[in-house]
C-alpha cells in the first residue's frame, strides 16, 4: 500500500479553485519533488495535506496509509505521522521552545498509545537530536522561533521532524530565504532523516535544493495540475529551459 495516494484532488481557497485535479502516488521511503512556478498551487497542496482552515477540498480523495486524510483534524494528521515543514515557521513569543517540543512529542506519543515522556527522558532525546543536527542548546531555550534567523527557523523545523519521526514529511519551500551555507546545513539535516519508512514530499520553486536533497521522482505543477513527471533529470531540464518552455511543451 502506498503511503500517500492523491486522486483527482480539487481544492478552493476563498471560493477560487487552486488545485484542479492532482494525482500523485508515493511509496514508502520515496522522495518526491514537486516543482512549479509561483501561483501553481504548491503551498496550497501542502496546506490541504496538513489541514489548514480555509482550504476546501471540493473533489477527489487523499489516502494516507489507506485512511481518508481529509477527515482528520490537523493535530490528528500530525499524530498519525504527517509532518509539514513550514515555509514560514510562525514566531510564538512567550512559549519556550523546550515546552513546545515536549508537549508536541507527548501529544503524538499519547495519540499513538505510547507512554508520555517525563522531563528527564525528554531531555535525553532532545539533547541527542540537537547533537546530531549540530544545533546549539541556546536555541531551544528561547521562545519558539521568536527572533530566529531564517536559517535557524528552518533548522528548528528539521529538529521537530527529527523528534516527531513522521512517516510522511512535506517540506514546503524549505530553501526559501536561505543562503547556500544554511541551505546545505538544512539539507544535511533532512538527508540524515531519510529512511525506508519515511517518505518526503519536497516542494520547491528552484532546482538547487534538489542538488542536496536528491529526489526519486520529480513532478511539475502548473495551474493546479501535475503536467509532467519524471526522474531527477527532469529538475535539471527545468533549470535549463525554464518553466515557460516546459509548461508550453506539456500543454
Amino acid at each position: 500500500m502506498n503511503i500517500l495516494s492523491i486522486k483527482d484532488l480539487h481544492a478552493t481557497v476563498d471560493g477560487k479553485e487552486i488545485l484542479k485535479g492532482i494525482n500523485l502516488e508515493m511509496g514508502a521511503g520515496e522522495v518526491h519533488a514537486i516543482m512549479g512556478p509561483n501561483g501553481s498551487g504548491k503551498s496550497t497542496l501542502s496546506y490541504v495535506l496538513s489541514g489548514r482552515d480555509g482550504y476546501e477540498v471540493t473533489k477527489g480523495e487523499v489516502l494516507y496509509k489507506g485512511e481518508n486524510l481529509m477527515k482528520m483534524l490537523p493535530e490528528e494528521r500530525a499524530q498519525a505521522g504527517v509532518f509539514l515543514a513550514f515555509q514560514y515557521p510562525v514566531e510564538i513569543p512567550g512559549v519556550p521552545t523546550v515546552t513546545f517540543l515536549k508537549q508536541a512529542m507527548n501529544s503524538v506519543r499519547k495519540a499513538r498509545g505510547e507512554k508520555e515522556l517525563d522531563a528527564f527522558e525528554f531531555k535525553k532525546i532532545m539533547d541527542a537530536r540537537l547533537k546530531e543536527l549540530s544545533i546549539v542548546n541556546d536555541m531551544v531555550r528561547r521562545a519558539l522561533n521568536t527572533g530566529f534567523s531564517g536559517g535557524e527557523k528552518k533548522r528548528m523545523e528539521v529538529l521537530q521532524m527529527a523528534m516527531l519521526e513522521p512517516s510522511l514529511a512535506i517540506l514546503d519551500e524549505t530553501d526559501s530565504g536561505l543562503d547556500i551555507d544554511a541551505l546545505k546545513t538544512v539539507a544535511d539535516g533532512v538527508n540524515a532523516l531519510r529512511a525506508e519508512d519515511r517518505s518526503m514530499l519536497v516542494i520547491t520553486h528552484y532546482q538547487r535544493l534538489l542538488d542536496y536533497i536528491v529526489p526519486d521522482h520529480v513532478h511539475v505543477l502548473s495551474a493546479g495540475r501535475i503536467i509532467l513527471s519524471g526522474d531527477k533529470s527532469l529538475a535539471l531540464e527545468l533549470e535549463e529551459k525554464g518553466y515557460a518552455d516546459i509548461v508550453a511543451a506539456a500543454a
Binding site: 496538513s50 489541514g51 489548514r52 482552515d53 483534524l73 490537523p74 493535530e75 494528521r77 500530525a78 499524530q79 509532518f83 509539514l84 513550514f86 515557521p89 510562525v90 510564538i92 512559549v95 515546552t99 513546545f100 508537549q103 508536541a104 501529544s107 503524538v108 495519540a111 521537530q160 516527531l164
Partner: peptide, 16 residues
C-alpha cells in the same frame, strides 16, 4: 495552526 500541525490538540494549543 502551527501548534496543531505538531500534534498538539486545539484546546491545549489555545492553552499554550
Amino acid at each position: 495552526f502551527y501548534l496543531r500541525a505538531r500534534g498538539i490538540p486545539l484546546e491545549e494549543a489555545r492553552g499554550l
